[in-house]
C-alpha cells in the first residue's frame, strides 16, 4: 500500500510542474508587466524608473522565458503568486479568505449529488427496462442539457420572485443575526443548480456499474447457493458496484469548479467563484492565475486521493 501511494505521488510531481508551466505561459499571454504584479505596491511608489530597471535585471525579467519561469516558480513555491491589481493584496491570501465559503457550497452539493445520484442509479439498475428506469434516464438527459445558469435563473423566478419562499441572492439576510436556517435557505437554490449535472453523472455511472456487477458470475453463484436477494445485493453487488464510483470524485471536480464560478456569480455567493468573476471583469490577471493554479492543483489532489482510496478498498488495483 505504502509502495502504491509513493508511486502515485511520484507520478503527480511532474504533473504539478506541468500545471505551473501552463499557468506561467498563460500569465505571459496576458497584457501587463509581470514586475508590477509581483512587487508589493507599497514599495513600487517609492521606486524610480532606474530602480525598477535594475530590479528587472536583478529579478531576471530581461532574461528568456525558461529562466523567468524558474524565478517565478521559486516565488510561487514560497506562496507568493503576486498581488491583485485591484485590491493590492497578496492573491493567495484573497483566495484563501474566500475558500471556506466555496468549499462548503461545493462540498454539500457534491455530497448530496453523489448520494441522490447513486440512489437513483441503483433503483434504475434493479428495475432495468421498467418505466422507472426509462423515466429516470430521460430525466437525467434533461439534467445534463439544462445550462446551470438557466436553471438558476428559472429557480430564482419561480421560488424567489413568484412564490417568495426563498431569498433571491446573497448568503445571509442583511441586518439579521447569522442563523443556520437563514444560511440554509440562501443555499438551497445555488446548491440545487450546482448539483444538477452531477446527479445525472452519478446516476448513469452507478447504473452501468450495477448492471455490470449484477451479471457477474459470482452473483449467479451467490444466488445459486440460496442466499436471499437482500444478502446477495448487500454483500456481493453493492460492494463491488459502488466502490469504483470513488474515482468519479476526481473527474467531477473540474466541472464543479467551473459551475461554482457561474453559480456564485448569479447568487452573489461570496466565494472563490465570485472572486474569479470579478477578477475577469476587472482584468485582474494575478487573481485569475491564482484561481487557475489552485483549481488545477485541487483536481490533481482529488484524483490522487480518489485513486488511493480506491486502492485501499480494492487490493486488485494496487497490485496491478
Amino acid at each position: 500500500m505504502t509502495q502504491y501511494i509513493t508511486r502515485r505521488i511520484l507520478i503527480s510531481i511532474p504533473l504539478l510542474f506541468g500545471i505551473s508551466i501552463i499557468t506561467f505561459i498563460i500569465i505571459n499571454m496576458a497584457p501587463g508587466d509581470p514586475l508590477t504584479a509581483l512587487l508589493d505596491p507599497e514599495d513600487q511608489i517609492s521606486l524610480s524608473v532606474r530602480d525598477i530597471e535594475a530590479m528587472r535585471r536583478e529579478l531576471g525579467l530581461d532574461r528568456p522565458g525558461p529562466v523567468r519561469y524558474v524565478i517565478w516558480l521559486k516565488e510561487a513555491v514560497t506562496g507568493n503568486l503576486g498581488f491583485s491589481y485591484q485590491t493590492k493584496r497578496p492573491v493567495v491570501e484573497m483566495v484563501l479568505d474566500k475558500l471556506p465559503v466555496s468549499l462548503s457550497l461545493m462540498g454539500v452539493a457534491l455530497a448530496l449529488a453523489s448520494s441522490i445520484g447513486v440512489m437513483f442509479g441503483v433503483i434504475s439498475a434493479l428495475k432495468q427496462y421498467s418505466v422507472i428506469d426509462y423515466s429516470l434516464s430521460v430525466i437525467s438527459f434533461f439534467m445534463i442539457s439544462i445550462p446551470q445558469f438557466f436553471f438558476a435563473l428559472s429557480g430564482m423566478l419561480i421560488f424567489a420572485v413568484w412564490l417568495g419562499w426563498l431569498p433571491v441572492f446573497g448568503m445571509w439576510t442583511a441586518g439579521e443575526d447569522p442563523e443556520l436556517w437563514d444560511l440554509a435557505r440562501h443555499a438551497i437554490l445555488p446548491i440545487s443548480a450546482l448539483m444538477l449535472q452531477d446527479i445525472a453523472v452519478y446516476m448513469r455511472y452507478t447504473r452501468a456499474s450495477m448492471l455490470d456487477t449484477l451479471s457477474a458470475e459470482y452473483v449467479l453463484t451467490a444466488r445459486a447457493k440460496g442466499l436471499s436477494e437482500a444478502l446477495v445485493l448487500w454483500k456481493h453487488v453493492f460492494r463491488n458496484a459502488l466502490v469504483p464510483l470513488v474515482t468519479i470524485l476526481g473527474l467531477s471536480l473540474p466541472a464543479l469548479i467551473g459551475g461554482a464560478l457561474i453559480i456564485e456569480t448569479i447568487f452573489s455567493w461570496p466565494g472563490v467563484g465570485a472572486l474569479a468573476y470579478d477578477a475577469l471583469r476587472q482584468r485582474d490577471y494575478p487573481v485569475q492565475m491564482a484561481v487557475l493554479l489552485m483549481g488545477a492543483t485541487a483536481v490533481l489532489a482529488a484524483n490522487l486521493l480518489a485513486d488511493v482510496a480506491y486502492a485501499w478498498v480494492d487490493p486488485r488495483v494496487r497490485h496491478a
Binding site: 500545471i19 473540474p254 475577469l280
Partner: peptide, 17 residues
Amino acid sequence: LVMTFPSFILIVIMAGI
C-alpha cells in the same frame, strides 16, 4: 496534464485575455 485543469476556468480566462 490538460485534463487536470478545470476546463471552464481555463476557457473563461483565455477568452478574457
